[in-house]
Design a protein around this nucleic acid. Structure first.
Lengths: 345, 345
DNA sequence: TTGAAAGCGCTAACAA
DNA sequence: TTGTTAGCGCTTTCAA
């Protein structure tokens, strides 16, 4: 059915099609776009010619006339890293379906490059811009009163009237906490990333508020450190020292959780029998490589991207969804590391 | 210095600039492009008007005339995964510098989607296409006699006349082997991914040929399995059983190496004192999270991307670099896991 | 039912 | 030195 893409070596214009079908250019255009009325025979002749010649309308010319480009820009400071990629894929999903193509730009987290790229995108007359970044912290917007709508995904603009779509870090923390409570844990510790990260603070807060609501004390203080396995190993030792009776650890990332898991093993604590473990990110290679496979929180990054794209499309269509921050709920992904503790004894 | 990007709310055409500067459109064009000769005063007046109005030339119109779009397409089957991203970044590097913008398309490894995207890219009159994929195996090309040049990066086209840029898996294996020999190891085992992967076979062959040249027997057979930590753990046990005197393991991926490292620990073998370990990929989170940090082989994916982009640019410029496969050398990244064994005793 | 002509924003010849 | 004109590929009036 689908013939391979081939041999349009030379570019075919509507002029060629018209000539081949022996009609005027205007007629050819109408035939190809199904506009106006004309004899079916004529239309068919044009379509056949177009088919035969492998005609592809030039979207530049079309866009020039329509004043549209059917393109958007995707700007990331994350070097298309672990977080921005799922967001991008979600966005591309939503955009690609609508015949919108995506220009990608990686700013390497450099404001000069960012500015440069935004200029270039605007020059190219993209119809909208999605900005993603590696941190959810509010960041300066990419420009004021830009001629096209902008949506921030997985990051926020400091300008509150801008549209931002972010994950629910606090909700994710709460989710993890409730899951641990539901599986019978009561002495819950927390090892997470640097306190300078909003994500770390919010996740900790989500945990803390659920514990408080349940009338429980946390097991030791929340331990802020690095986003690394190494820190997870250290943090676990600190935690075991501060709260030897800990029966669960909620970690700010899957990497940290792996480090914690290793130390627990080394110290003779079994996961999940003695200590349950919950990570954050649902980063598959980490989560599945962990012993045992790790229960974790998924931020639904793809959904963030899709939502960002949908907001952008709405704004492009002239029905902006109103500014402000949209928070996408997280999900809990249960695995072996929090299997219900068997009754003591 | 750099003022924030702002307020070009309404699109400004060269017509507006010409009117503001009280010159004809043609003159404005020449002034803006530095063509022809004219009074500096006039030129300055035009430039000032353009600046003041925030004029950005419409590249669609420019491209329409020049018959160029200054865009290329980047098609990946890898969902912008771990391998295609560095390649993409490298490509974007080389392209972005030259004012070329990149359309990204993710085919989700689906031939229908791929075809669809390629059609769309061609319709958009991209000037070239880079194809990346998750496997280096030769794959059917994206089309025959396309009107634009195509470069395959991190994958190969089955059509040998196509341009492909791939990593040096065999060389990487050899590099790892020589490094292990140089650090005094002689009983070298190999645990790697599925034999169905060219990458796995080539890496194994690189190791084997170096061992053979050194007159050494491998420690046990090459163990083909999965690209997972879990397999690394299993594989290590098999290896220890088959060749208890093994003093080094070369692994087909960093993930496998981590699994191997864990099993070695569990079995009381110290890394690197008793057994040295080399991975493959230089995937930082894996490599640095490993205990101890992992010596590994880096495929220089960024370089692959840059090279692909350069080939593409050459072809676009009309000086194609000739078809065929280009192999990019790998590098060894030494870390703790192969620290030289201290003399016995 | 079809064709001719204007024009999208721009550049490059050529004329003035 | 500047302005005028034609035309890139296409769509869309409007006239035939």
């Amino acid at each position: 059915m689908a013939s391979p893409i081939e041999g349009t070596a030379k570019t075919v214009t509507i002029r060629d099609v018209a000539a081949a079908a022996e009609v005027s250019i205007g007629t050819a255009s109408k035939a190809l776009n199904g506009r106006g009325r004309m004899r079916t025979e004529t239309r068919d002749r044009v379509l056949a010619a177009a088919e035969r010649l492998g005609f592809r309308p030039n979207p530049l010319a079309q866009g020039l006339l329509a004043g549209r480009t059917y393109t958007v820009g995707l700007v990331t400071g994350d070097s298309f890293g672990r977080f921005s990629i799922p967001v991008m894929l979600g966005a591309e999903d939503a955009l690609g379906a609508g015949q919108i193509s995506v220009f990608m730009c990686d700013t390497r987290d450099d404001p000069i490059r960012e500015r440069h790229y935004v200029e270039r995108l605007l020059a190219r007359r993209v119809e909208g811009i999605i900005v993603t970044d590696r941190r959810t912290e509010p960041r300066p917007g990419i420009g004021r009163d830009l001629p096209v709508p902008v949506v921030y995904a997985m990051t926020q603009s400091t300008d509150e009237s801008d549209v931002s779509i972010i994950p629910d870090d606090e909700g994710g923390g709460a989710l993890a906490a409730r899951h641990l409570l539901a599986t019978g844990r009561t002495r819950i510790g927390h090892v997470t990333g640097p306190e300078g990260f909003q994500a770390a603070r919010l996740r900790a807060r989500g945990l803390a508020s659920v514990l408080a609501a349940a009338g429980l004390e946390p097991a030791g203080e929340a331990l802020f450190g690095q986003w690394s396995e190494e820190w997870g190993r250290q943090g676990a030792d600190i935690l075991l020292h501060a709260a030897p009776d800990v029966d669960a650890v909620f970690c700010g990332s899957d990497q940290i959780a792996r480090g914690v898991a290793e130390t627990l093993r080394d110290r003779g604590r079994r996961v999940p029998e003695d200590v349950a473990l919950v990570g954050f990110d649902n980063w598959e290679p980490m989560v599945l490589g962990c012993r045992p496979p790790l229960t974790t929180v998924d931020m639904n990054l793809g959904e963030i991207g899709r939502l960002a794209a949908r907001h952008l499309l709405d704004a492009i269509a002239g029905t902006p969804s109103g500014g402000g921050v949209t928070i996408v709920p997280a999900s809990l992904v249960p695995r072996e590391s929090t299997r219900r503790a068997t009754p003591k004894g």
